[in-house]
Write a protein that binds this DNA or RNA. Structure first.
Lengths: 189, 189
DNA sequence: GAGCCTAGGTATACGATGTAGACATGTCAA
DNA sequence: TTGACATGTCTACATCGTATACCTAGGCTC
């Protein structure tokens, strides 16, 4: 709050003439950005439209570095948040999915619906110098052979991950899974 | 820190004779619990073993209410954390998965590997009284028809969700998806 | 037995943070 | 002209993690 006040060239307490408190401010900020999520290109095919909407969420949230922690710290859903969730569900209902499946799919997609995911805990970054890196890997390999194996042999080893690709990979895994369950007439019993 | 000191019947600063700072303490707490994750029943089938290990993580983390936020606040991986990740990868490598697929699978599973998931933003809980609830739903339905449709027609409507079932649903969606990609000789190109 | 190190605890204080409460001021309607 | 209201300011407080300086009892060395 004090930093924001500084940036506005104003006393911290001046902010409180406009908002109740910090939490309400964050609510409003999240709401504002979430409201940006347009309905994207809908073609009437539920999986495509769901994917498009989630990618629209991704592009909206990624424009604001503070959005991830802001969303994650909210404890109640704002109108815009509810609208986004409602739109996701509507897409699935329109596609003929059962209420049961929509329910479970929403839980499964909850880690993706805002367009970002909490990363795996970061492993130490490898040194840039090749000789140095080889030595670091060797030491590391003693205790964590599989991590090193993956880090050294996966395509793009050494480079940083393509986060868009990783996001899409997991998203499609979930969407394809839901589609398959739907086709098989899945029910939670 | 001050509350912990109180509980120990000691001055806050006494704690600092034993640890560097609050962050290191949380690191150690997480490390301690993560180390509890035993290798569970391994039967030599990668999907089963992966599932078992993640469920072992779930049972370890769920014993400690503070674990979720503690893990989520860590910025560097501890030895026990690395060991858990290494074990997950080893299981997949042993199952014959490619380095490429292991890499992507780990990203996709990163939201499940500790045995918990960040919940969907909570929607307002429905009133207990049936008449009151009906009225609340009616008002809500005007703006969020699909949410209400799901909430009222999904099996177990009105009851609270079975979080274990929801966790398993999403986990299996991911595992089955990875298995299918593996069977089809998937590669990221 | 004298001296001293050290592990573990205390007392005090500081800076950052969100925010309560009382007070000032400029604008505009009545 | 008056007074209400919107918008600021100033001061102060509780809470938090933690730096610094100091104390003390037990056990070691000589």
């Amino acid at each position: 709050m004090r930093r924001l006040a500084d940036e506005l060239g104003v006393t911290p307490m001046a902010i409180y003439k406009h908002i109740d408190n910090r939490e309400r401010l964050l609510d409003a900020m999240v709401d504002h950005v979430v409201a940006e999520i347009a309905s994207a290109s809908t073609v009437g095919e539920w999986k495509h439209d769901l994917r498009a909407r989630i990618l629209a969420a991704r592009s909206a949230t990624r424009r604001h570095p503070w959005m991830q922690s802001a969303i994650e710290s909210r404890t109640a859903a704002s109108p815009a948040v509810l609208a986004h969730m409602d739109a996701l569900m509507a897409t699935m209902f329109d596609g003929g999915l059962s209420s049961d499946l929509v329910h479970h799919a929403m839980h499964a997609l909850s880690t993706r619906m805002w367009g970002f995911t909490r990363d795996v805990l970061p492993t130490p970054t490898a040194p840039a110098d090749p000789a140095e890196r080889a030595r670091a890997y060797a030491a590391f390999a003693e205790h964590y052979p599989s991590i090193v194996r993956m880090a050294t042999t996966a395509p793009g080893a050494g480079e940083s991950c393509d986060t868009d690709a990783e996001f899409l990979f997991a998203l499609d895994l979930l969407l394809d899974g839901v589609e398959r369950l739907h086709a098989n007439g899945w029910s939670s019993r």
